[in-house]
Simulated assay, not measured.
Amino acid sequence: MTDDEQIKSLEERLKKARNQGEPDVDEGGKPSPMGLAWKLGIELVIGVVVGLYLGSYIDDWLGTKPIVMILLVLLGFASGIRNVIKVASEMNKETDDQKQ
């Protein structure tokens, strides 16, 4: 294998490796429905987990065992639901704009 062939082979492998990190998008450059579903699910779970962790830490610090943890878990859940509603309304608006 000559040097030129090795360089071309390396360039092709690098291009392929770089493209593997690309976000999952459809033809229009928008996130795919599956990617969007994963994003929403992860946002919902992360909000609850962060609320659980911070609430537990603050409860230990203040000595108010489950009170702050419950409040922050509910706040994280509400934040996740808010994000889901926000994205759903944006998707609905885009669909209405495409129909017109």
Rank of each mutant, 00 (worst) to 15 (best):
I7C: 03
I42Y: 05
L36A: 11
G41F: 07
Y57A: 15
M1G: 10
D59L: 08
E94F: 05
E27S: 13
D60E: 11
E94S: 13
W61L: 14
P33M: 03
E43S: 13
K93C: 02
I85R: 10
G35Y: 00
P23R: 13
S79L: 14
S56L: 13
V87S: 09
G76A: 11
S32R: 15
M34Y: 06
G28M: 06
D97L: 09
G41D: 03
G51S: 12
E90R: 10
V45D: 01
G63H: 05
K39T: 14
I7E: 12
E22D: 15
G28V: 01
L72R: 05
G41V: 02
W61G: 07
G35P: 01
L14E: 04
P33F: 02
A17N: 02
K86Y: 06
D4Q: 14
P23V: 03
D3F: 04
R18C: 05
V68P: 08
F77D: 01
Q20H: 10
I42H: 01
V68A: 11
E27I: 09
Q98F: 08
M69I: 00
K30W: 05
S56H: 14
G63A: 09
S32E: 03
D3I: 11
P23W: 04
K8M: 10
L75C: 10
L52R: 01
D26P: 04
M91W: 11
S56E: 15
L52T: 06
P66F: 15
D24V: 00
K30R: 13
P66Q: 11
I46F: 08
M69E: 07
Q100A: 06
S32G: 03
E5V: 06
N92M: 11
L62A: 13
M69D: 00
A88D: 07
A37R: 00
V49P: 00
P66G: 14
K39M: 12
F77M: 14
E90I: 03
G35T: 00
S9K: 12
L14N: 05
L72G: 08
L72C: 08
T64R: 05
A37M: 05
Q20S: 11
Q6E: 12
V84S: 14
V84C: 15
K93G: 00
I67S: 10
Y53G: 09
Q100T: 04
L10P: 01
N92H: 10
K99H: 02
G76S: 12
I67N: 06
I7Q: 11
D26A: 06
A88G: 05
D26E: 13
P66D: 15
M91V: 14
I70H: 10
G47H: 00
L10D: 04
V84M: 15
D3L: 09
P66V: 14
D97I: 07
N19L: 10
W61S: 10
Q6H: 10
G21E: 13
T2I: 02
L62E: 09
Q6F: 06
E94L: 10
G80S: 04
N92G: 07
M91A: 15
G29L: 06
K86H: 08
I46G: 04
I70R: 11
N92W: 08
V84I: 15
Y53M: 07
V49E: 02
S89L: 11
I46E: 08
T95H: 09
G35F: 00
G28Q: 05
E11I: 10
P33E: 05
L62P: 00
G63R: 05
E5Q: 12
S56D: 14
K99D: 06
D3P: 02
G21K: 14
L40D: 07
K39I: 02
G29C: 04
L10S: 07
L54M: 07
R18H: 14
